[in-house]
Design a protein around this nucleic acid. Sequence first.
DNA 1: ATATAATTTCAATAATTTTTGAAATTTCAA
DNA 2: TTGAAATTTCAAAAATTATTGAAATTATAT
Lengths: 167, 167
Amino acid sequence: MQFEEAKQKFISTWGSLGTLWGINKAMAQIQALLFISTAPMTTEEIMEALQISRGNTSMNVRQLIDWGIVRKESRPGERKEYFSTEKDVQELARIIAKERSRREIRPVIKTLAEISNITDDGKPGTRELIRQTKALYELAETADNMLHKIVNQKQNWLTKSLVKMIS
Amino acid sequence: MQFEEAKQKFISTWGSLGTLWGINKAMAQIQALLFISTAPMTTEEIMEALQISRGNTSMNVRQLIDWGIVRKESRPGERKEYFSTEKDVQELARIIAKERSRREIRPVIKTLAEISNITDDGKPGTRELIRQTKALYELAETADNMLHKIVNQKQNWLTKSLVKMIS
DNA sequence: ATATAATTTCAATAATTTTTGAAATTTCAA
DNA sequence: TTGAAATTTCAAAAATTATTGAAATTATAT
């Protein structure tokens, strides 16, 4: 496999993986492109590399900036903007985990808490609803906390010491 | 909030959360419905409760069975089938984690390994591609292993002892 | 074995999501 | 300031994904 092929493969793999962390294909592909780029890129260059429109590029780059994954930089004497992504995978994981939690997990946990707190009228249906939503609530809460603990770990968890620890 | 409202809210919340674990809305809603049901349900009852078509119900129930989350049971003297879901949240989490890993994470890890193993021709672009895909590969591999370790934990990880452990 | 209830399949349709592209707006070098 | 380059916006179009419903198939109580 040559460079160009490998590069395309990486971009498309990462792009289709977008769903896994809750973003769309173009957004994930832009991030992938910047992630393996040796220098910040302009809108024009991104459009060219991924064969997508200006509007699409603009909207998705903006979203990546909202997520805190991409940074904008300007160069003196030049009007156009240059974009680059967070290059450290651990920091990337930390940002993604935090954002997904905030955008999707926390709201669900909140709703589960509300539902599991309805008044128990003693009917079996109500009982089961309360019991099961409570169980889900606890699971979600624990998982979410655990995720934060792991990604915020100062020491490098890639060293696998953490994995060994919980084995 | 009354039972009916709470029930609908739970089904729709869980349904929209489907994307988080990679399944579609109808599939997630059926699972939600069964999860808080006090007894196994027939196709007819699911259709009625969720207001969806027979075909849709059939396909999504089958998919849930493929995932190993729903079980079919038949009763002597009755031709129709009854469906029920795994009721234990930890077991549910275990199944979902295992399936998502197998279906989506492992294939991506495999691709990342392939890409990071292309021959280094010394060009900066190639260097960066290799460096970054390797870093992602290691992160993904570690995270995937960790996930398995956690959900397969025999002792109840909801007790938060595990969370405390890695704090 | 048969009749029929139950389930599955799948082409057609609907709903949703993504992308485009051109007009409107903003930005900043000169 | 000015004006052109750059960016953003957003309605329309395209692409994708989900759902329907009726015909075909399967399963089983009698």
